[in-house]
């Protein structure tokens, strides 16, 4: 009797469970699962805007290996990551640390420094193009007042990656410092009190207490930053003309993908680029998880 009742209830619960999941599962099956496998399929075809796509096996992947534009965009992407991730981590940690230490005005500083996080990339792009302007931009004007030569921030091939990285760092520190600040606030104050009693200097307590106890948050922020910066597109698109010489040196893998897929409509090849992006991001993330044992301390 009781058993019958519980199985009946269990069936009802199972029914309810699947009914509640139904809208999500329908959406995910179409827009994620089907889309994922379709993208793999497209990468084996010569799909473009015209004609029926034909199956061409691994041709796109072979073409990739000998495409200098692909290799250059991949190298450039790694440059963005190598320049921006450490800067975002160091600055984000310092800002969060000082925000936590500041007794007065802390919420004012936090609000002010958070503004880029709620600003749309296009407005940031507009703003920085004006600041970087060769003749009238504020940065070059300050430089010329200091007798430093003007710099062609957005057209000098050797510089353009760094100019874009500065904008990227400027806009990303504001988000990451919030996560790091939350991490800092979770560290119990008794550790610092104990260290102070033992006569530890502020430097010692930062390196021996703060950093180790913050390391799980730092790890999380690193993972997120690497993934986000690896997919850099917005600021390149917004700040460099597609036909400019500088674009050769600024182009990231995702920009190249966008260009192939939606500007020149070489969709089959673009799909293979996106698969490479997926595999690289997956590998980098796995490597980071392997190496976390060396530096991340969990209580």
């Amino acid at each position: 009797m009781i058993n019958q009742k519980t199985t009946a209830m269990g069936q009802k619960e199972t029914m309810a469970g699947f009914l509640f999941l139904l809208p999500l599962l329908i959406g995910l099956s179409i827009f994620y699962f089907y889309a994922f496998f379709q993208n793999i399929f497209i990468s084996f075809t010569d799909m473009s805007s015209f004609g029926k796509p034909a199956y061409i096996g691994l041709e796109n992947y072979k073409r990739l290996l000998t495409d200098p534009k692909f290799w250059r965009s991949l190298k450039t992407t790694f440059k963005y990551v190598a320049v921006s991730v450490p800067a975002v981590m160091v600055l984000g940690t310092l800002v969060a640390f000082f925000l936590q230490k500041a007794r007065k005005w802390s919420s004012f500083f936090r609000t002010a420094m958070f503004l880029p996080a709620v600003t749309m990339p296009a407005a940031i792009g507009l703003l920085w193009r004006w600041l970087y302007n060769y003749e009238f931009g504020l940065i070059n004007i300050i430089f010329s007042q200091l007798d430093i030569a003007r710099i062609a921030w957005l057209s000098e091939p050797a510089l353009v990656v760094y100019s874009i990285s500065i904008v990227l760092i400027w806009s990303m520190v504001s988000t990451q410092m919030i996560i790091l600040l939350a991490g800092l606030q979770n560290i119990p104050t008794m550790y610092y009190e104990a260290a102070e009693i033992d006569g530890a200097s502020p430097f010692q307590s930062f390196f021996k207490i703060t950093l180790p106890l913050l390391s799980p948050t730092l790890f999380f922020v690193t993972i997120i930053s690497v993934i986000n910066i690896f997919q850099i597109f917005d600021f390149i698109f917004l700040m460099i003309q597609p036909t400019a010489l500088a674009m050769r040196y600024a182009m990231s893998l995702v920009y190249y993908f966008y260009d192939r897929a939606f500007i020149v409509f070489d969709k089959g090849y673009a799909a293979s680029l996106s698969m490479v992006l997926f595999v690289i991001i997956l590998l980098i993330t796995i490597i980071q998880f392997v190496f976390q044992k060396k530096w991340v301390h969990y209580n």
């Binding site: 199972t14 599962l25 995910l28 994620y32 889309a35 993208n39 690896f230 995702v254 993908f257 992006l277």
Partner: peptide
């Protein structure tokens, strides 16, 4: 709610977070 397959489905759904969005753009 408790129902068979719940945890497996949840893990698969979470796995989607690992895939960069560009993968889906052409199919979308």
């Amino acid at each position: 709610l408790r129902f068979p397959g719940r945890n497996v489905i949840f893990m698969i759904v979470l796995g989607l977070l690992m895939i960069p969005g560009q993968i889906f753009l052409i199919p979308h």
